[in-house]
Every structure is written in structure tokens, then in C-alpha cells.
């Protein structure tokens, strides 16, 4: 079936569940849901061949709002769950979603190892630079001088992570940034990310209207990267460092061996175990 026919076969609504999201009105996460459903509909993927795994947090509720298989997991462990699923069911298209706190703090270790392992899955961090579900604390992507939380009344004073830079250093083979104010542009990025063979990372700038209302102005600052996709990590690193974090598009894409269980280096266990055979 060609892509045009597939698009007719399934609509974005077919990929939404009957549950109404409880996100705050105005939340960018609605647009991530729209972008995912548009991307899946465009790709014509059968719902039973897609799984969406999430962690804990406002954004991680997204798994319940789609009609594909889903698992609303443990805080920070979405990538661990997803890796297990992909190892067991390599035929599934595995999407992973969560927030900046879930993915870069509690789940930070899983994130860097998922990047270097390069299993074939797509990870979307819905980045609003705040812990929203617990009512507004600084996250690993919060600016050091953000002082609106009672826990950090003078700001954290700590340099925030650059998610794209972290992913590049850790070995992700596809890195992109999208913006929820442009759900169609984000959907296009997701189509490329899902189609990529290996670990694809998408940072979705997703404003929080409740705890970071100033982010509602992001729509005036976001712009498209003015360079082509790079396959050169040095070039990509320079691009990420030179950017203010508000540029969108695919930053880096490269082909690297995709990890599948059994494709790693032989650890010699086979020969040892064979000694036990009677």
C-alpha cells in the first residue's frame, strides 16, 4: 500500500483512546498527542503493532490517551521497560514518552545507556523545564535562575542539561527537537524518527501554562534550524552548542549498528554453560 492509501486507511482519531486528557487547558502535551497520532496515521501502522511506554509525570499519562498498546510505567524507568519490550518483541514499533524530570533526572541513567545501546525505538521527552505533577519544582532542564519554586527560592544555581547534547554524547543515532506550537512540524519529525533504524530521540518543547506560564511566549522565539541534517557528530555538537535551545528540526542522524539481544559480543557463557550439559 502506498503512503497516500495508508493515510486514508487510518485517521489520527483512530489512534486516540476514548479517555479525555486531564492535562491543564493550554498544555503543550495535547499537541504531542496530536503529533503522535498524526504521525502514526500517516505511516499507516497497525495499532496492534505499536506500543507506547511512559514513565511518571503529567506527560507520561499520554500512553492512556492513545489506542495503541501502552504501559504507564515506573518513574524514570520507561526506557528500561521499553528496552525489555523491544528485546522480547522486536517486531513492534516502540515509542517511549515522558517528561524532562522523568527522563533526565530519575531516568537519566537509563537515557544515556539507551542512547549508546541504540535499540530501535523512539524516545520523546516532553520538555517543559519543570516537574508539573508535583506542583512546580525545578527539573534538570530548568534555568539556574528560575526562582518561582518554594524549594529553590533563589534558583537552583545549577547548569541545566542540554538534552540534545547529552543524547549526542551518549551515542543516540537520531536527534531532533520539535515544538508543540507546531504539531504538524512535530509530526513530520516523528515520522522520520520512527522510520529511523536505531535509537531516535526527540525533544519536544512543551510549554507548561500552569507552573511556567512565561513559556507561552516560546511561540515567538522558536525557529527552524537553518542547516541540513548532519551525520557528523562534531558538526552536530557545534550546532547544539551554538543554539539557544529554541531551534527545531532534525539535528543529527547517522547509521550505527542496532542492538538486538544476541547480537552483542559473545561473553563466553555459551561454552561455559555447555560444560554443565549432561
Amino acid at each position: 500500500m502506498d503512503q497516500a492509501a495508508q493515510q486514508i486507511a487510518l485517521t489520527p482519531k483512530d489512534f486516540k483512546s476514548a479517555l479525555k486528557p486531564v492535562w491543564c487547558p493550554g498544555c503543550g502535551d495535547f499537541a504531542v498527542l496530536n503529533a503522535i497520532t498524526k504521525a502514526l496515521a500517516f505511516m499507516g501502522l497497525p495499532r496492534e503493532e505499536v506500543a507506547l511506554i511512559s514513565g511518571i509525570g503529567c506527560s507520561s499519562r499520554i500512553a492512556a490517551y492513545t489506542s495503541v498498546y501502552g504501559f504507564h510505567g515506573v518513574h524514570g524507568r520507561a526506557l528500561a521497560l521499553a528496552s525489555g519490550l523491544k528485546a522480547a518483541r522486536g517486531d513492534l514499533t516502540v515509542l517511549v514518552a515522558g517528561g524532562d524530570g522523568d527522563g533526565l533526572s530519575i531516568g537519566g541513567n537509563h537515557f544515556i545507556h539507551a542512547c549508546r545501546r541504540n535499540m530501535d525505538m523512539t524516545y520523546i521527552i516532553m520538555d517543559n523545564e519543570v516537574y508539573g505533577m508535583t506542583k512546580g519544582q525545578a527539573s534538570p532542564t530548568t534555568a539556574p535562575d528560575w526562582a518561582d519554586s518554594k524549594l529553590t527560592p533563589h534558583g537552583t544555581g545549577i547548569r541545566p542539561f542540554q538534552p540534545a547534547g547529552l543524547a549526542l554524547t551518549a551515542g543516540a543515532s537520531f536527534i531532533a527537537r520539535g515544538f508543540t506550537g507546531d504539531p504538524n512540524g512535530l509530526a513530520k519529525i516523528l515520522v522520520a524518527a520512527i522510520g529511523h533504524k536505531g535509537f531516535s530521540f526527540v525533544q519536544a518543547l512543551s510549554p507548561c501554562p500552569t507552573f511556567r506560564p512565561e513559556q507561552m511566549l516560546w511561540k515567538h522565539h522558536v525557529k527552524a534550524f537553518d542547516q541540513e541534517i548532519s551525520s557528523n557528530p562534531v558538526e552536530a555538537a557545534q550546532r547544539i552548542q551554538a543554539d539557544d535551545g529554541m531551534s527545531t528540526g532534525i539535528i543529527y542522524q547517522n547509521e550505527r549498528p542496532v542492538f538486538r539481544p544476541g547480537t552483542g559480543v559473545d561473553n563466553g557463557m555459551g561454552s561455559i554453560e555447555s560444560e554443565f550439559t549432561i
Partner: peptide, 14 residues
């Protein structure tokens, strides 16, 4: 970024 008659999600408040 979207169709001209599509309201912006970020313009609403509860």
C-alpha cells in the same frame, strides 16, 4: 503553523 481556523491550544485557560 496550523490551519487558519484552528484555534491555538496555548490560548485557552481553565
Amino acid at each position: 503553523m496550523e490551519g487558519p481556523e484552528t484555534g491555538d491550544i496555548s490560548d485557552v485557560n481553565y
